[in-house]
Design a protein around this nucleic acid. Structure first.
Lengths: 234, 234
DNA sequence: GAACGTTTGTGCACGGTTTCACAAGACGTC
DNA sequence: GACGTCTTGTGAAACCGTGCACAAACGTTC
C-alpha cells in the first residue's frame, strides 16, 4: 500500500482509451482468455499496437516480454487506475427523454456506476419512477447527494436549464459533471466537466458526408475520400 | 459557385468546434446581435480568442479588422462548410431506451437533422410509434434508406447487436455512422464512424475524481487539483 | 488626412500525441 | 546453456493542436 507512489500523470488521451481497453479485457476474461498481446488488444480496440503498449506502460510494466499481458491482472490494474474498484453513484438532473434513457441504460451498472437519484424541476414528473428510481424534486438535490456521498452529476435537461442544473449540482457538492445539454456550462475552478452533444456529433458526420459529396462531384484531383474518425475501420 | 475551390482541409479539432460556434452564433442572431468579436465568441464557447480566430480563418477571411464578424454571414458560412444548408435525414437502428431518447430529442430538428426512420429487429417493437415515427422492421432498412436517400445512420442497439447493425447500415448504403453502443465496430474503408460511449465518459470523470481523492489524502506535495476537461470552467 | 484605438489574421514556438524502430527480456528447444 | 523466436517497453522522430504576440487593416475622431 505504501508502495504506491502518487502515480505519474497519465496523458488525457490515454485516460480516454483505458475504459475501452477495460471493456474489451473484461469481455475476454469472461470468455476465458487469460493472456493477450498488445496486437490482439489493439485489433479489438481499433487502434495500433504501439499505442496500446505506450498506454499500458503508463500504468507500470505489467506485461511479460515474449508472452503478452495477463488479462485478469490488467483488468484489475486499469480498474484501480480509473478508480473503479468501487461503484460510483451518480445523480441525474432531468427526467425527460435523455434522463430516462440514461436511467434505464444497462451499460452503467455493468461498468461501475449506479443511479443514486434522479431529480427534476417539474412537479408533474416528481414521483414517477424511471429506471427503477423515483424522481425527486430538484430542491432535494443536496439531500440526495449528501445521503449517498455522490460526487458525479449528469445534466440531462434542455439547454436552457443546463446552467441552473450545473449551479445546483455544484452547490450540492458534486465535483464532476457530465453534460448532455447542448450548452456550454460555467463551473468553478476545480470541477471536472465532460460534455456529450448529440447534435455536434451528427454535424461532424455531416461535414464528412458533405466533403465526400463535394469530392465526388468535385473538379480537379479527387483523392481517397475515405477517412474514418474515432472508432475503427477495416 | 465556380469560385469555390475544393476547400483546404479543415483540421479535425476545428471541425469539432464549428458546431459549437454555430449554435452560439445562431442564438446570438435570434436575439438580434449582428456582429461579434472573436473574444466575445470565445467567452461564450469556453475557449480562447486566438483559437476562435484560427478556426474561423480556415473558412476564409470573413472578419473585419477593428470590428469583428458579422453574425448572420458567419452562420451562413459555417452552415455551408458543415453541409448544413439542407436537412439530413438519419435512420436510427434500435428502438430501446436510447433509440427512443434520440427520436424524441428536440435538439436534432433544430440543428439540421430529421428522423427519417427507426428500425428494430424485435417484432414486438415494430409498429409502435416513438418520437412521432413508426418503428419498422430492420429488414426494411434498405428500403427506408433508399426512399429518403439517407446517408447517416445511428446505432442505438445493445452492444452485442452493434456490429450487425453496422453491417446492415453499410449494406443499405449508409456512409456515415454514429455509434452509441459500447462496442468498437468494424466498417469498410470509406465509411465515417463517430462514437459516443456514455460509460466511457463517466469513467473518465471517475478517474479525475479518483485523482482528486488521492491527491487530497495523498502524502507529499499536493498541487492544484482542479482541471476541467472539454467544456468550460470559470 | 493623420493619428489613434480596436480587432483580425497568422508566423512561430511550444507541448502533447502518435508512430516507428529497436534493444532488452522471456520462453522454448536442442 | 546457447540459440531462435516472440513480444514488451521506450527513445526518438514526425505530426498535430494550442496560444502568444504582433503586423496589417478597419473605423472614428479631430
Amino acid at each position: 500500500m505504501a508502495g504506491q507512489r502518487t502515480r505519474r500523470r497519465i496523458p488525457e488521451a490515454t485516460v480516454a482509451r483505458l475504459p475501452v481497453y477495460l471493456r474489451i479485457l473484461s469481455e475476454q476474461f469472461d470468455i476465458d482468455v487469460t493472456k493477450i498481446s498488445s496486437e490482439e488488444l489493439a485489433d479489438l480496440a481499433g487502434v495500433n499496437a504501439a499505442k496500446v503498449r505506450k498506454d499500458l506502460s503508463y500504468l507500470g510494466s505489467y506485461g511479460t516480454r515474449g508472452v503478452g499481458y495477463e488479462v485478469e491482472f490488467l483488468v484489475y490494474q486499469i480498474r484501480r487506475e480509473l478508480g473503479l474498484t468501487h461503484d460510483w453513484p451518480v445523480v441525474i438532473v432531468g427526467s425527460g427523454n435523455m434522463g430516462q434513457a440514461l436511467a434505464g441504460y444497462n451499460g452503467f451498472g455493468d461498468r461501475g456506476f449506479t443511479v443514486g437519484g434522479i431529480v427534476d424541476i417539474d412537479d408533474a414528473k416528481v414521483g414517477t419512477v424511471v429506471g427503477g428510481v423515483r424522481v425527486r424534486h430538484v430542491s432535494e438535490l443536496t439531500r440526495v447527494v449528501a445521503a449517498q456521498n455522490i460526487s458525479i452529476g449528469v445534466i440531462a435537461t434542455p439547454g436552457i436549464a443546463a446552467q441552473d442544473a450545473a449551479d445546483a449540482l455544484v452547490a450540492a457538492g458534486v465535483t464532476s459533471i457530465l453534460n448532455f445539454a447542448p450548452t456550454v456550462i460555467n463551473v468553478p475552478h476545480g470541477i471536472s466537466v465532460g460534455k456529450v452533444d448529440l447534435a455536434v456529433e451528427l454535424q461532424i458526420l455531416a461535414y464528412h458526408e458533405q466533403r465526400r459529396i463535394n469530392a465526388a462531384k468535385g473538379s480537379s484531383l479527387v483523392s481517397v475520400p475515405g477517412e474514418s474518425r474515432r472508432g475503427a475501420s477495416a
